[in-house]
Amino acid sequence: MAPKKIVVFGITGVQGGSVARYLLDDGPEKFEVWGVTRSKTSAKAKALEQQGIKLIEGDLDKPESYEAGLAGADNVWVNADFWLYYDGHNADVAGAREVAQNKGVIDAARRQKVPHITFSALANFGDKFPVPHCDSKVKIVEYLKDIGQNHALVYPAWYFTNVLIFPRRREGDKWIVQWPFPDDKKMTGFAPEQVGAFARLVFRDPEAWNGKEIHCVCDIGSPLEQAAAIFEHLGVTVEVEHLTRERFFSPEFKATLPDELFINYKAILDGIEDPETDTAHALYPGAWYFKDWVANTPALATTFTK
């Protein structure tokens, strides 16, 4: 049997790169991995090519630039990135562009008779907690269903890697980190480096996953628990800034964040979340808990030096 042709959009990004790696692990007899990139001559693109990935040079704003590369594909990984177009205040503009790009990919895939599409979705917090970068994803999910396109949905949870970019300061021999949640808030999370393991389940058996969802909720932990996990592995004292609900909702704290992040954090703080992790670990037994991610992330040692 010929290998399945899988086209990965965002191949040089975190999610797309993870999808490609896990497909490559199955071997060339299983999958032929293609990636869409703006420039085939970039350093990242050349490195992917050396791994055996075939590249399609294309612009997400111009479906005609990549559509021919979708011919003969068995599945497509779709994930246009809202954050590439967000400047801190233009959520409507960034969301509209993300929706247009995702629809462009879906429509181009349909014209090329691609039988199945796998979409990287996000939680729907509903009317009570409108979150623009989530709502744009919801529109694409609705679009896939409305047009009757065979599809599967992969829902990434909160990225463990966010810890690397939280505001922090050093005080003597310890680090003070500003988690954007109160100390005891339980956050669902996962390692974005592993999203490809969940997507690969769909690519291996798209019929079994048609119309279904995979939620990558691999751990649930509070800022206090995450700080303790970093200390346990690195031996470096990492303390939370002890953000209270009152401080979180203060104008002073809100002013420290881009609008979209504050809206997102507010929805996570008081919105509906799936607290169950067993399903994700049953689907992919190698999925990391936060402590595993800590142990497998050398960048933490650079971020929190002794």
Rank of each mutant, 00 (worst) to 15 (best):
126 G>N: 12
161 T>R: 03
101 Q>A: 01
162 N>S: 03
118 T>F: 02
162 N>P: 03
149 Q>R: 07
149 Q>K: 06
138 V>H: 08
159 Y>E: 07
104 G>P: 03
136 S>F: 01
123 A>S: 15
136 S>L: 08
138 V>P: 03
118 T>H: 07
125 F>L: 01
140 I>G: 05
103 K>W: 06
142 E>I: 00
140 I>C: 04
141 V>M: 07
134 C>P: 08
191 A>P: 10
132 P>H: 00
173 D>V: 09
187 M>E: 07
175 W>A: 13
187 M>P: 04
187 M>L: 15
139 K>I: 03
116 H>W: 08
108 A>F: 00
123 A>L: 15
109 A>E: 00
174 K>T: 13
179 W>K: 01
186 K>L: 14
145 K>Y: 00
173 D>E: 14
132 P>A: 09
157 A>N: 14
163 V>Q: 11
141 V>I: 13
187 M>Q: 11
104 G>K: 07
111 R>K: 14
191 A>T: 15
100 A>Q: 14
105 V>Q: 00
109 A>T: 03
124 N>W: 00
146 D>I: 01
103 K>H: 09
135 D>N: 13
160 F>R: 02
112 Q>C: 14
106 I>H: 01
150 N>G: 03
104 G>S: 04
161 T>C: 02
112 Q>H: 11
173 D>Q: 11
185 K>R: 11
119 F>T: 11
150 N>I: 06
175 W>E: 14
157 A>W: 03
138 V>A: 12
107 D>K: 14
171 E>Q: 13
142 E>F: 00
175 W>R: 10
101 Q>H: 08
113 K>T: 08
116 H>S: 06
137 K>L: 09
179 W>H: 12
172 G>W: 06
160 F>W: 07
188 T>L: 14
190 F>T: 12
186 K>P: 05
114 V>E: 07
147 I>Y: 02
163 V>H: 05
108 A>I: 00
189 G>S: 13
165 I>L: 10
144 L>H: 01
143 Y>C: 08
111 R>I: 01
164 L>R: 06
128 K>Y: 02
179 W>N: 10
128 K>H: 05
121 A>T: 14
191 A>I: 02
128 K>T: 14
114 V>T: 04
130 P>C: 05
171 E>S: 13
105 V>T: 01
124 N>R: 05
156 P>Q: 04
190 F>M: 15
124 N>D: 12
109 A>G: 07
139 K>V: 10
117 I>E: 06
